[in-house]
Design a protein around this nucleic acid. Structure first.
Lengths: 200, 200
DNA sequence: ACCTGAACACCGTTCAAGT
DNA sequence: ACCTGAACACCGTTCAAGT
């Protein structure tokens, strides 16, 4: 790759990152090229589709996430490992609103530039989930696809401005659903007729 | 309202319904007007924003949903009532992919044509949730906003084609999270080291 | 090799002109 | 009252022409 091309590509990525963080994954590609002071054709040459651009923006984080899954799979508590990883997985697309819908679409579309990343993500999650299931701490009736869907839903939720204030709390609620055997806050309403205290 | 205007409006709504079901809530308004064989300005006159059009398409279902909440609040089992209503709430936007994001945005935007419907929906859910909480069967650390967010997330999920096959199952998982005290399938992994049977 | 921007076929939105 | 469609300012995508 020629030096000038490399420079264009890098600059384009930096501008794309800030623009997407500002306007979401549907930001105008024309506008990104304009801000980068580069011809529109140059953007298309480096990133033939919007998915390709997003993939370039997120690739490093995806790779990190896959490594983290392996690290965590060796570390201690399987429940804690899974929850930690879920947090990190959701954080990856945070701020790139609209990107998660493209990722979900990509998992069923082998032609998408995001396909491989999605498959890797799902595989990493599946490993940690299975470990937690074998440990008897995660529900047994969910699989890697379910986990991928739950991650997607939580990531989507965390990128809807009006829902942001509840996102962390709902993460906990859903984590409890996945890991009912985990030592956590006794959230429940208690026995019918009981008088549980009001948390929060 | 003049008879010809009424006719245009009704026809526009019928065409819009089928177009949105086919292409999602971001369907081209120009295309809807074209299919309805009506001037573009006529569409804008009747529905000044995309939200106004969606609202007109969904209003009847929203009203029904609010009534259903009252019915169910009087009927028997609070847990069962809530779950039934949640199912119906999610079904309302089913097929209108992309609509749920507009609704979420609308709940924080009093100027949106969808605002009132969202508020009504949230209020109806809150009533059923509180009843279940008082009955000791729903977790006490969630409120109407959380329920609205969970409905949104499940509705979003159910409109992502690759996730559709898991949507029903994930509904159950999240329903279990909301209603841990409910007599349901013993999904859990059992005690650590235990040998729970494999459901499903 | 790589870059550029005009060209094409679309959009959403507005509004003067018509009936 | 209501309808129409041209006009405007945008898109995404392609591709001939340049360096």
């Amino acid at each position: 790759m020629r030096a000038d091309a490399r420079k264009n590509r890098d600059h384009l990525l930096a501008i794309a990152r800030s623009t997407v963080l500002e306007q979401g994954a549907q930001a105008s590609l024309r506008d990104i090229a304009r801000r980068a002071e580069v011809g529109l054709g140059t953007l298309y040459r480096h990133f033939p589709t919007r998915e390709a651009l997003l993939e370039a923006l997120l690739r490093a984080d995806f790779d990190t996430l896959a490594c983290r899954a392996d690290e965590l799979a060796q570390a201690g508590d399987p429940a804690r490992s899974l929850v930690t990883w879920l947090h990190e997985a959701i954080a990856v697309t945070h701020g790139f609103s609209g990107a998660i819908a493209l990722m979900v679409a990509a998992i069923a579309d082998e032609g998408s530039a995001l396909h491989a990343s999605c498959v890797t993500l799902r595989a990493a999650g599946t490993r940690l989930l299975r470990r937690a299931q074998e440990d008897g701490v995660a529900r047994r009736d969910i699989d890697g696809n379910d986990l991928f869907a739950l991650i997607s839903a939580l990531a989507w939720l965390a990128d809807q401005p009006p829902l942001v204030p509840r996102a962390d709390h709902l993460f906990d609620v859903i984590a409890d659903a996945i890991l009912p055997g985990r030592p956590g806050t006794p959230h429940a309403g208690g026995a019918p007729g009981g008088s549980a205290v009001q948390p929060r």
